[in-house]
Amino acid sequence: MSGLSVAGLSFRYGARAALEDVSLEVAEGAFCALLGPNGAGKSTLFALLTRLLVAPRGRIAVAGVDLARAPTAALARIGVVFQQPTLDLDLTVRQNLRYFAGLHGLSGRAAEARIVAALDRLGMAERAGEKVRALNGGHRRRTEIARALVHRPSVLLLDEPTVGLDAASRAALVEHVHRLCAEEGLTVLWATHLTDEVRPGDRLVILHRGRVLRDGIAGEIAAGRPLTAVFLELTGAEA
């Protein structure tokens, strides 16, 4: 399995269970939407996938590398876009990406070439010299995605990346990431609570109260009904 593999993951904040026995497999080059209402455990799962937290039980493998046994090698294969913006507003787009490239051990011409390529891929090349503060929300998000691709990861994790964006920017971002999946063979885990970001052909995992409720192809889970109705029914019944 060279995509993303999560097996038997559980995590508690004190007495409160945030994740219970969560397992999912995302094949290499697949787009997987992780759909769940607020408080479902999506951000906790992302914190565990990026080793901000360590789970007492369960196993995570990134592109075949065990996160617990070889954290550095596993993290090198991950690109992350966090729910919270993590750009330095007073630095330029290029400076932000250069900083990130350096954290991944890239410097000099190699880093510059990758920065240019990543920005180009997201249509942000002309903005490279601008301060992030001057960018709108959509462009900031694109910058973050470009940054997450600089080190050429195998797996891209996006935690509710469209929060705060207008409809057009959201649609454009969803399109961009699907294209990255199709054209570059990137494995994507896209956390969201918005059903309109999920396409019928996407792999879909519905998470609610720390448990996986459904895992399959979005179109098959919806079974001809609107996905929103199915999602509300599933999570509403559990609420």
Binding site: T50, L52, P71, T72, P85, T86, G105
Partner: peptide, 14 residues
């Protein structure tokens, strides 16, 4: 609080 600590702590370094 602003999230950039996450970026640092998820870098592939000890």
């Amino acid at each position: 609080e602003m999230g950039s600590m996450r970026l640092l702590l998820t870098a592939p370094q000890p």
